[in-house]
Write a protein that binds this DNA or RNA. Structure first.
Lengths: 172, 172
DNA sequence: CTAGCTGCAAAGAATTTGCTAAGTA
DNA sequence: TACTTAGCAAATTCTTTGCAGCTAG
């Protein structure tokens, strides 16, 4: 069994949540879905479909790419994961269970993702939606920043070739 | 000359801005770029590369798709346009010149885009970034809402086959 | 002239989908 | 058993690139 950096409790809860979701939709629990839940919860931070797939493969629990994509959609719909678009061309996911809501700052330089929460902003967003008579379904706040100081401290090193290309090509 | 729903003044300003930008980077002004500026400014709302390309083609000023993509990058870098990711798989652009900054609400149902501004939210965002000692480069706030009431009024009808597929497939 | 541009076709990256065998309720 | 999945490969969608000839400065 692969190492799980999330508490067993969370994993239990997650599996139960998924089961309930599947039951409600008359879908089925499979080994691949269980495996994906475990692997997804043990990822730290924000991961891509490809990264999850690699983690599974490395862990000896190969699940096909197609299944990873289909599975991520299920995990997101069941609210185990939350998906984000950080404007770099690839969708990223993060654990949404047993965590508090938060927003993100993304360094345009090194693509590091820093999380933050601000209740006043949350409240104001809700206000805006209500003023329009709508219902909030979800929201996405991403601040694109330059974390020069942080990098100076040696903590801002995650740039990859691909991300660098994206960055300089004017996307985001 | 194609119809321009933007004031001639804005068009003038835009062309001057672009010229200045190009000069600074030792790039060249071309018919295609001029044409794209005109067409982009006359688009209303948020458009995709494909929509701009179609508008140009229909207007008899065919510009190749490759040039449209390359041109959009230039127009965005020169701050004539602003690009957004509304989590539907395609980048969208909107005029950024002679307009005030604003954020967006996107109806997850019909994909309509509603703009709004909220200075308090803006200020709080700036505060958050400063608290971390970073510099804000850009920010993106999108509220995904359900505009049922609005649709009831008959104003929420822009759903396309493709968008519908996206929506039901769990993206965003 | 000469670096930058355009169009075209081909390449790419990230997802999605059709199909058949296999698995779950 | 009946309907949902998994895996695989092929197909898509959006976007980027290589190249040859054209063009602005």
């Amino acid at each position: 069994m692969p190492r799980v950096s999330t508490s067993d409790d969370t994993l239990e809860t997650a599996l139960h949540t998924l089961e309930a979701y599947l039951r409600g939709k008359r879908l089925k629990m499979t080994d691949q879905r269980r495996t994906m839940v475990r692997a997804a919860l043990s990822q730290d931070g924000h991961f891509t479909a490809e990264e999850l797939h690699r983690a599974l493969t490395v862990g000896g629990e190969a699940v096909s790419m197609a299944t990873v994509y289909r599975g991520l959609a299920v995990l997101e719909e069941s609210d185990l994961l939350e998906g984000h678009d950080f404007a770099d061309g690839t969708r990223r996911y993060e654990r949404a269970i047993d965590r508090e809501h938060h927003d993100h700052m993304v360094c345009v330089d090194c693509r590091a993702v820093i999380e933050f929460t601000n209740e006043r902003i949350e409240a104001l967003q809700q206000e805006v939606v209500e003023e329009h008579g709508f219902t909030m379904n979800d929201h996405s706040l991403t601040l694109f920043v330059e974390c020069k100081e942080w990098r100076a401290a040696g903590a801002c090193e995650r740039r990859t070739a691909r991300e660098e290309r994206r960055r300089t090509s004017g996307i985001s």
